[in-house]
């Protein structure tokens, strides 16, 4: 099939998923609720006064931020594929849309959902925990790159989990060891950004994160059709 048609198909899948998500709000609600719950729980004890006195607060906040993002993402990112398998609509997609277009469409939706989630979590942390971000640019780059890496590693896992029978907790179990490198660097770089570290200090971490992102995306593109047609 010609190239423009392929991208059009990917866009059609993404558009359809957004339409459905806006009508059911299943993934968005689950993720938003998780993010809010986490932020509120953290702020009870580690609110503005409790944490700001602690010299290690940047590290603690960076870890908490990524815990909120990771587990909230685990709640919602598998939805797009699990829904297709559970409602048996995956067959319709398989018959009508090229596999790679399905993948790119779903990846796009997951990226958008993650961007919304990261924005929400950041705003909650700023609002409830009085977080100040010393190096805003670095913070934004870390979140964007981290989100891109997270989506790259987990979108294909979502396909895999949708094909397995025990869908509930399996996604997190499968995803955690794979995204461990990403989480470690993301926490480190976020800590730097919060405490006013320089770009030079974050450089090698960001490079590693970019390399990881590329590797995961390439592997996912290469393996997706096999999972999808399994």
């Amino acid at each position: 099939m010609a190239k423009p048609v392929f991208w059009q198909a990917a866009w059609a899948v993404a558009y359809k998923d957004l339409q459905i998500e806006l009508r059911t709000r299943y993934a968005l609600n689950a993720m938003a609720l998780f993010a809010v719950t986490t932020a509120v729980m953290v702020s009870f004890r580690l609110g503005p006064l409790g944490l700001s006195r602690d010299p290690r607060s940047a590290a603690t906040l960076a870890v908490l931020l990524w815990i909120a993002i990771f587990f909230a993402a685990m709640n919602g990112l598998s939805r797009t594929f699990v829904r297709e398998e559970e409602a048996h609509t995956a067959t319709l997609l398989r018959l009508n849309v090229p596999a790679l277009a399905v993948y790119l469409g779903k990846l796009g939706v997951n990226l958008l959902i993650l961007a919304l989630l990261e924005t929400l979590v950041t705003l909650l942390f700023i609002g409830l925990l009085n977080v100040t971000i010393a190096n805003v640019g670095l913070f934004l780059v870390t979140l964007s790159l981290g989100g891109l890496a997270l989506a790259g590693a987990t979108t294909i896992l979502a396909t895999l989990v949708a094909k397995a029978d025990g869908k509930g907790s399996l996604f997190t179990i499968l995803a955690f060891p794979l995204v461990l490198p990403l989480l470690i660097i993301a926490v480190e770089t976020t800590e730097l950004a919060l405490s006013g570290g320089t770009w030079a200090a974050a450089g090698s971490g960001l490079q590693l994160l970019a390399a990881y992102t590329i590797a995961e995306h390439v592997a996912a593109l290469w393996l997706f059709e096999r999972v999808w047609e399994a």
């Binding site: 590693l208 393996l223 096999r226």
Partner: peptide, 16 residues
């Protein structure tokens, strides 16, 4: 497929 995905991620642990 999972074994291969893990195999792609693990080398990064060595650097990370």
């Amino acid at each position: 497929i999972y074994a291969l995905l893990a195999f792609v991620a693990v080398p990064f642990l060595i650097f990370v």
